[in-house]
Design a protein around this nucleic acid. Structure first.
Length: 448
RNA sequence: CGGGGCGUAGCGCAGCCUGGUAGCGCAUCUGGUUUGGGACCAGAGGGCCGCAAGUUCGAAUCUUGCCGCCCCGACCA
């Protein structure tokens, strides 16, 4: 992408209402623009990141055996009356009436709708198990939206739903999602820690929040240091195999959010040097809720003996738009974003220090074309801006690699390569730089 | 929803107390000098001062109402 054609409205000064790093940087880097309290437009740069995150989530859901679909944002109130949640949900639900005065709502979640869809097409236990998911915008009229996209009112969420014949089978579905989540967040360069969460009226051990540690996290969390270095299940994990050992391993060490924290247990089970008490961002939540919706909404199947039984359900959410903020919280410095390769809006920033100079232009065009041909996402700054401004802007955008071409380096036949992560700079022979960077990008995009 | 605060040019702000139709920095545009980490000189454009009513000869400024946004708290992917 040529910068001159792109829409990248960067800000030199920090907008006054941005309190935390991710919000500040997203505004400054021209990723989002606020349209109302907790409502944001995604500008081209932010949209690229959002799409890359969404794609990773999708790939890992598919790998775990979930099937993608798409449900509408607008739902009918009648559906929610069936489960009894229409009145229970309260003011967080945005209620709408259409021209015929029918009561509608902008979906805050989709349990009712998926249950309706499922019951319409499944009759027998032989059709189970099933796992369905979609990635869709939701709206929750939060009392107090804040922190930019981390707690917006409108947000993009992946939600999956599992349907099983009994609790034992449901447990297997739950495990699949557990593993899928570990992999999903790891691929984005995040350390996520599954923490036990409130299971509500059902009880049991089947509810976990996936937390990313960050100073600006909204909840206080407590865990064993051992969880941080625990190896994430590999790409070739067979999701139909017994996943219990993996779950056992990840749940063997203490990890709880504030609400579930038990200080006595914490001090008893975790050595002082291994105790982490920090703040975290919830990026995913998996939950088994049994017959909560299937029973009142009559999502039943015939069992082997012919008797109708309500299906056992679970739901599994990932805050896709929130992840953009969460990743920035985890990966940034004073100058800007430091994107992990997998979700970087651009892999490489190419800086032409002397646009208009024949030699510089020719050299840059050549590298630009070579990188693009190799499938690398390049942001090519061919504007007439001054060097300092170009460097600062590229640091703000945060591509993992920057290639700088200027008259000085060109004389010696070299390009300067800077790694955004640690600022390390090196000179690379002009003839080799494109191939070298393309290789590095490809290597970084390989995932476990 | 309770408590606090803010709304003046694209962004950051001053002016308001003590009424006289608006200013600063950055950004933008033009010309010139510059050019390896956010340049310099000269000039220019850009504002129903959130909206509405009221007081007044006169309102960004005072009064009332409304709207919007932010922060703290209880609640949440």
């Amino acid at each position: 992408m040529r910068l001159s054609r792109y829409y990248l409205p960067v800000l030199k000064e920090t907008p006054s209402d941005a309190q935390i790093a991710s919000h500040r940087l997203m505004l400054r880097a021209g990723m989002i623009r606020q349209q109302g309290a907790g409502i944001y437009a995604w500008l081209p740069l932010g949209f690229r990141v959002l799409k890359k995150i969404e794609q990773i989530v999708r790939e890992e859901q598919d790998r775990a055996g979930a099937v993608e679909m798409l449900m509408p944002t607008i739902q009918s109130a009648d559906l929610w009356r069936e489960s009894g949640r229409y009145d229970a949900y309260g003011k967080e639900m945005l209620r709408i009436t259409d021209r015929a005065d029918r009561e509608m709502l902008f979906g805050p979640t989709n349990e009712e709708m998926i249950t309706e869809i499922f019951r319409a097409g499944v009759r027998s236990y032989k059709d189970l198990p099933k796992m369905l998911y979609h990635i869709q915008w939701k709206f929750r009229d939060e009392i107090r939206p804040r922190f930019g996209v981390m707690r917006g009112r409108e947000f993009l969420m992946k939600d999956a739903y599992s349907f099983d014949i009994d609790e034992d089978a449901a447990r297997k579905s739950y495990y699949k999602m557990f593993v899928a989540y570990l992999r999903t967040f790891a691929r984005m360069g995040l350390k996520s820690i599954p923490m036990r969460a409130d299971t509500g009226p059902i009880g049991g051990d089947l509810s976990h929040e996936f937390i990313v540690l960050a100073e600006t996290g909204e909840s206080a969390v407590f865990c064993d240091r051992g969880l941080i270095d625990m190896a994430v299940p590999a790409k070739d994990t067979d999701f139909d195999s017994d996943l219990k050992p993996v779950i056992d391993q990840f749940t063997s060490l203490y990890a709880a959010t504030e609400e579930k924290h038990d200080e006595t247990e914490f001090t008893a089970k975790v050595a002082v040097s291994d105790r982490i008490s920090a703040r975290g961002i919830e990026v995913g939540h998996i939950f088994f809720f049994g017959e909560k919706y299937s029973k009142p909404m009559r999502a039943v199947v015939a069992g082997p003996d012919g008797a109708e039984i309500p299906v056992q359900m679970g739901s599994y959410g990932v805050g896709v738009s929130r992840l953009v903020g969460a990743i920035i919280e985890a990966c940034h410095d004073k100058a800007g974003c430091k994107w992990p390769m997998a979700i970087a809006p651009f892999h490489v920033g190419l800086i032409n220090l002397r646009a208009g100079d024949e030699a510089c232009d020719a050299a840059c065009e050549k590298i630009y074309a070579a990188l693009e041909a190799a499938g690398v996402d390049v942001l090519y700054d061919e504007t007439a801006a001054r060097p300092g401004e170009k460097f600062a802007r590229m640091d703000l955008v945060g591509a993992p690699y920057q290639i700088t071409i200027g008259p000085r380096g060109l004389e010696s036949g070299e390009a300067e390569v800077k790694r955004r992560e640690d600022g390390e700079k090196s000179s690379v022979a002009f003839a080799e730089v494109a191939a070298m960077i393309a290789d590095r990008v490809k290597a970084a995009l390989e995932y476990a």
